[in-house]
Each structure stands twice: as structure tokens, then as C-alpha cells.
Design a protein around this nucleic acid. Structure first.
Lengths: 248, 248
DNA sequence: CGAAGTATTGACTTTACTCAAAATAGGTGG
DNA sequence: CCACCTATTTTGAGTAAAGTCAATACTTCG
């Protein structure tokens, strides 16, 4: 079994080619950075700050003034919203290459918290907006990222509004399998570094319901669990069917 | 009681000033169109088609090729997603001035269906994208609209994932009160032209649960119902408290 | 090794769903 | 304008899925 840590490895401090960190960055081909070519990327690099967050720590919190955007280069974050009475909703789990900081208003409406050790590039909104003027492709990329994030959020709305516990969890596992295949290639297991509570707060359920759904999937031989955070999908097609429709 | 129809009145066929429909359009100050001034707006007008949809009819459907965007000028639409087994999730109810057509991929991921008689401006995506090159402010507007829509969709995620029936409905009524106040000014009642079933499919519940929540709010004197589609909010602050937290 | 956090399981409760029926509203044609 | 038909809304009664509370097992990490 490949240790999960290795999947979310942090990027090297220096690039492989030339002198720019960007050249060797695992997020170089991400939706944001790929908008600029190797000749242009140093404009983005010049106004970037590299930040690092340890598990459990926040990249930003809900009330922080909304004046920076980020591109995750290594590790995994979760974007969460907390209500005054303690109820929590997780909006997304983010992977290397993901752009973070889409929003409106004067403060963030979500907090970004590290699930694994993570590194990100940070830009002041003002600097990014100035770059939009020089590189329209950059603004186009951000707009398209926004469209993709919106589409994913609408998927989540459907799942939360209209799916039961088994369907929700099947959707969740398949989503992460897909993301991890794209990033790391096909592998034996799906890594789920978040807790059962985190999954519950993403899917609009309770820890117990999620735990029972895992157990049920295991018993019905849809998945195998090496440990709580390593899921082997036994029958992908059948799991996809479950995600589509499951009745008792 | 002001008839609901009048709120969603369709725009006049010709503008009030000059020869451009845009000049007299109720959506002239909308997030999209206000990106261009009176001198520039004719570039947008030149490639626009005006379309009209009757209640129950579709502006576009889920499978249609995704190659047009719209700006609603009059009436109300709902954006809905349908699953193969008949389950439906409504993503939004749109008001005059709303931009419609944010998304990703080759076909729409939602359908847009008229709730009242509605009119909209339609543009081919290709034409709009060409205008982005000449008017960066237009692309900026669309990007910002996307951010606002994403924020609203995240609110919906929280509501669906973490709120009970009474909280959901309180949130829903207050949302539409707010939108209608902004558009039409403060008025005695909130117009809800959609059916109970539509509300249920927006809030991730059933018709019966929504109907019972309305009845309960009426009995607790939070609202009064002239008829099923005209809600008078008796105590706005208390309704806001209910939206925040309600227990039995 | 012990402590703390996390995960699972069990027993019971509750909220919302389902099915069914009655009441109400809306629209059409006579 | 009224009667009838249909769709919508409301209400009731019973059920089921998920929530709550509590105990136990398992991990991780100092």
C-alpha cells in the first residue's frame, strides 16, 4: 500500500528547470497557472507569496478580510462554513492545483483549513486584478474556474437535496476516486484523509450515518477498507449505480 | 393587494429614450448590461435576440448544446435539474436582471423553465466572448456575477445540508422578500408564484413538509397567507431568528 | 503505556416521508 | 357567469430513514 502522505507530497523548494519555483511546481499545469506560458509566468511569480499550513490550521477564516486568493500547490484543504450554533457545512475538499478564493463581499464566506500539510501560492487580490489587465487569458481562466466550481457546487446541491445516505457516500467516494486518478493516476485505493465527521459535514449527515453507510458498503462488497482512510473500490460500476439510485 | 403579475411585468417593446430597446429595458442596470455605458451598449444590443417564454415552457433544457447565454428582462424562471428516476432539484429562481447561462461543459447542466410569462435577451456564446476582447469590463462583470451566484449556491448548500424544514422555509421566504424589495421596493406581501412542489424541490423536502411548515408559521403568527402565493411577513426579525435556528 | 481522539455499533427517538383523502383554487367551455 | 374538471394545497395517519445518546473498540501519538 502506498502511504497516503506521498500522494499529497509538498512541492520541492526550487524548480527543476531555470530559476523559477513555478517551473517545477506540481500546480504548473493547473487551471490558473497554465493561463500564462513559461515566458509570462514570472509576472505571476513576482507577486506571489508561498505559504504553508499544518493540518488543522487555517489558511484563512470566515471573518478574515477577503483580499487574497490562492492556488494550492501541495496537500489537501477543506472549505468549511460554521453557524453560530456549531453546525458546520463543508463546501469542498481541495486538491493540488485547485484555485481557492472565489467569492463575493468584503470577507471570506468560508474558512480554508488544512487536512494534510499543505502549501499554496498567495496573491493579493489587487495584484491579481492588475494582472488581469495585462493578461486577459488570466481573467478568462479565473472565470472558467468559477464556472467549474459552480458546476461542482450544483452537483453538491443535488446530492444534498435529493439523495439518501448510501447514494451520498457512493457519490463522495467516486468523486475522490476520479480526482485522485486524474492527479496521481489509477491506483488500488482512494485516500480519504478527512474524518468521518468531515465527510458527514460535507454530505449533510451525521458521523453515525456515514459510518453505518461505510459498514454497509463493506458488507455488500462494494468497497474494502484497509483502514478508515483507505478505500478500495471493489466494483466501480456497481458503486456508480448505487450513487445514481439506492433503495434500502 | 397588488396583483402579482404586475411585479413581473414584461418590458415595453421599445425604449423610452432613443431607439435602442436597451435604453428602456428594466434590466438596463443589471449586473451584465451595466458593464457597458449608453454609448457602448449597442454592441451588446447588436448581437442580442429577444426571446419570450410562456409559463411552463423552457428557455433551454438540460441536454441542449451549451452555446447561448441570457439576461432575464422580465418575468421569473426556475433553474432545475432532473434525475433519471424523476427526482428534481431546483437550483434557483431567477428575477429580472439575472444573468443566466453560467456553466461548464458542452451542454447545459440545468434547464431553465418559465414560472411566469418571461422575456430575455439571448446571445450566442461566441458573440459574447468576442465582446469580452473589446470590452474587458464585460468579462469582469460576468466573472463577478459568477462569484455572486457561487456565493448564493453555497448558501443553498448550507441550508440543504444543515437546516430543518422550518429553518429552510424561513430562509426561503426572507430570500425572496429581500430580492423583491430590491427590485420593486418594500411592499406588503412577498409574491411566491412557484408551487409548493417547486419550493420543496428547491429546499430538498416534500410538498407535504413544506405545506405543514407554512401552516405552522401561520399558526405561530410569523406569516399571513392572503392566498397560497402571497405571503405577508408579520414579524421579520422573528422569522430571521427562525431561519437561523428553530427547534420544534 | 496511557490518553485523547476517532470510528463503530446498539438501542431508541424524532423528523420528515409516504400514502390517502379532503378542501381549495384555477381554468375552460357551455 | 356558472358548472365542471383538474391541479394544487392542506390535513391526517402510519412508516421509515436518519438523528440522538451511549457504550465500546480502535488508532495515533506523546
Amino acid at each position: 500500500m502506498v502511504p497516503m502522505e506521498s500522494l499529497f507530497a509538498l512541492p520541492p523548494k526550487t524548480g527543476g528547470r531555470g530559476d523559477l519555483v513555478c517551473y517545477g511546481c506540481p500546480a504548473r499545469r493547473s487551471a490558473l497557472c497554465s493561463a500564462l506560458d513559461d515566458a509570462e509566468i514570472h509576472f505571476l511569480d513576482a507577486v506571489a507569496t508561498r505559504v504553508r499550513v499544518d493540518p488543522g490550521q487555517y489558511l484563512f477564516m470566515e471573518e478574515d478580510p477577503y483580499d487574497h486568493v490562492f492556488n494550492l500547490s501541495g496537500g489537501m484543504l477543506m472549505l468549511e462554513r460554521l453557524a453560530s450554533d456549531g453546525r458546520r457545512q463543508i463546501m469542498a475538499f481541495t486538491y493540488p492545483g485547485d484555485f481557492i478564493g472565489l467569492g463575493a463581499g468584503k470577507s471570506y464566506s468560508i474558512a480554508a483549513r488544512a487536512l494534510t500539510p499543505a502549501t499554496a501560492c498567495r496573491w493579493r487580490m489587487r495584484d491579481i486584478e492588475r494582472l488581469y489587465d495585462s493578461f486577459p487569458a488570466l481573467e478568462r481562466s479565473v472565470r472558467e474556474i468559477g464556472n467549474a466550481v459552480l458546476a461542482a457546487t450544483m452537483d453538491q446541491v443535488f446530492v444534498l437535496g435529493r439523495k439518501n445516505a448510501m447514494e451520498k457516500l457512493a457519490f463522495f467516494i467516486l468523486h475522490h476516486m476520479d480526482r485522485q486518478e486524474r492527479l496521481f493516476g489509477k491506483r488500488a485505493t482512494v485516500a480519504l484523509p478527512m474524518t468521518r465527521g468531515d465527510i458527514a459535514d460535507f454530505l449533510g449527515a451525521t458521523v453515525e450515518t456515514i459510518s453505518r453507510a461505510f459498514t454497509r458498503m463493506r458488507k455488500e462488497n462494494l468497497i474494502r477498507l484497509a483502514d478508515a482512510h483507505e478505500v478500495e473500490v471493489v466494483d466501480c460500476d456497481r458503486l456508480a449505480q448505487v450513487a445514481e439510485h439506492f433503495d434500502t
